[in-house]
Amino acid sequence: MLDDRARMEAAKKEKVEQILAEFQLQEEDLKKVMRRMQKEMDRGLRLETHEEASVKMLPTYVRSTPEGSEVGDFLSLDLGGTNFRVMLVKVGEGEEGQWSVKTKHQMYSIPEDAMTGTAEMLFDYISECISDFLDKHQMKHKKLPLGFTFSFPVRHEDIDKGILLNWTKGFKASGAEGNNVVGLLRDAIKRRGDFEMDVVAMVNDTVATMISCYYEDHQCEVGMIVGTGCNACYMEEMQNVELVEGDEGRMCVNTEWGAFGDSGELDEFLLEYDRLVDESSANPGQQLYEKLIGGKYMGELVRLVLLRLVDENLLFHGEASEQLRTRGAFETRFVSQVESDTGDRKQIYNILSTLGLRPSTTDCDIVRRACESVSTRAAHMCSAGLAGVINRMRESRSEDVMRITVGVDGSVYKLHPSFKERFHASVRRLTPSCEITFIESEEGSGRGAALVSAVACKKACMLGQ
Rank of each mutant, 00 (worst) to 15 (best):
W257S: 01
E279Q: 13
A460L: 10
D400K: 14
F316S: 06
Q18E: 13
D274E: 02
R192A: 11
E196N: 05
P111R: 10
V222T: 01
G295L: 07
V305G: 01
V207G: 01
R155L: 10
M121Q: 08
D132M: 15
M462F: 09
V101S: 03
L164H: 14
L324A: 02
S263V: 15
L386V: 14
R46M: 15
C220E: 02
L352D: 00
C220R: 02
I159N: 07
T82P: 14
R46A: 15
D311V: 08
N231Y: 09
R155C: 06
D409L: 06
I19P: 02
N350I: 01
H416D: 10
S426H: 11
L30W: 02
D247A: 06
G285M: 03
K102Q: 15
L415G: 12
Y214I: 10
Q219M: 03
T332W: 12
V226T: 02
K102Y: 09
A454Q: 13
G407R: 03
V91C: 15
Q98L: 07
L451Y: 07
G343I: 04
L164R: 11
Q337D: 05
S441P: 04
G193L: 05
G68I: 11
R192D: 02
I19V: 14
T149F: 06
D42N: 14
T118E: 12
V241T: 03
C129R: 03
I225N: 12
K56W: 02
L25G: 02
G223Q: 01
L306M: 10
Q106P: 01
E70I: 05
G227W: 02
F269E: 03
W167A: 11
A53W: 00
K136P: 00
F171L: 13
Q323S: 07
R36G: 05
R85G: 15
D278F: 00
V71S: 07
E435I: 11
I211L: 08
R377W: 00
F84I: 09
Y289K: 05
M121D: 13
L30A: 14
G388N: 03
R250N: 09
E265F: 09
G264L: 03
N283M: 10
E236Y: 01
M393E: 01
E312Y: 07
L185C: 05
R392Q: 13
E248T: 10
Y61S: 12
G183C: 04
M34L: 06
I390M: 10
E372A: 08
V200T: 13
A53T: 08
E93R: 11
V222Q: 02
K169S: 13
L451I: 12
D409Q: 06
E319S: 12
D274P: 02
D409E: 11
Q219D: 12
L304D: 03
Y289H: 06
L301P: 00
P66L: 09
C382D: 01
L47S: 10
R63G: 10
G72P: 02
Y349G: 10
H50S: 01
A6L: 10
D78A: 14
V200R: 07
D78W: 12
E177W: 12
G97R: 09
S69R: 06
R85T: 14
D73P: 01
E440L: 12
G407P: 02
I348R: 03
A282I: 08
E48G: 06
K143F: 05
F152W: 15
A449L: 06
S340R: 11
C213K: 01
Q18N: 11
V101Q: 07
P59D: 07
V253Q: 00
G407I: 03
S109K: 15
E245A: 13
R186L: 08
G246D: 04
L270N: 03
V182D: 15
L25C: 06
V71E: 12
R333I: 04
V305Q: 02
R275I: 10
C129D: 04
G94A: 13
V277A: 09
G94Q: 13
D42I: 05
L430E: 00
G249T: 02
M121S: 15
R358F: 05
S426T: 04
M402A: 13
A201Y: 03
Q323G: 13
A384I: 09
K104W: 08
G183A: 07
Q24W: 15
Q239Y: 11
I189L: 12
L134Q: 03
M238E: 02
Y349P: 08
L185I: 11
R275A: 12
S441N: 06
V389Y: 05
V408F: 05
L164D: 15
M37S: 00
M121N: 08
A173T: 14
V101M: 08
E279G: 06
E9Q: 06
R303D: 01
E70C: 04
N179P: 12
T342S: 08
F171N: 15
R191V: 04
R368F: 08
Y273F: 10
L306D: 00
S396K: 15
D194T: 05
V253F: 00
S64K: 14
G446K: 09
D73A: 03
C461M: 13
S441W: 03
S383C: 03
Q347N: 11
Y61R: 05
V200W: 14
A282P: 10
G343P: 03
E67M: 05
K291W: 01
Q138N: 11
W167Y: 15
N254M: 14
F152L: 13
Y234S: 03
G294K: 04
L315H: 02
A378C: 13
S445R: 14
A450K: 15
I351T: 05
A456N: 07
D198R: 04
A232W: 06
G385C: 09
V455Y: 07
G385I: 12
S54E: 09
L386T: 14
G178R: 12
E268T: 14
H141C: 11
A370M: 02
G223T: 01
M8K: 14
A173F: 12
A456H: 08
A379W: 01
Y297A: 10
R303C: 01
F334V: 04
L88G: 06
F316L: 11
V55T: 06
E216T: 04
E27I: 04
C364L: 05
G264W: 01
L270P: 01
Q286L: 13
H218E: 12
S396H: 08
M238S: 05
L355F: 09
C382K: 01
M210G: 02
M87L: 13
E331A: 07
Y289V: 01
H416R: 06
L146R: 05
E93Q: 07
G258R: 02
V427F: 12
F123W: 09
S76Y: 09
L415T: 10
T228F: 09
S131Q: 03
D73I: 01
S131N: 14
D341G: 04
H141D: 14
F195P: 09
P284E: 07
N204P: 07
E120M: 03
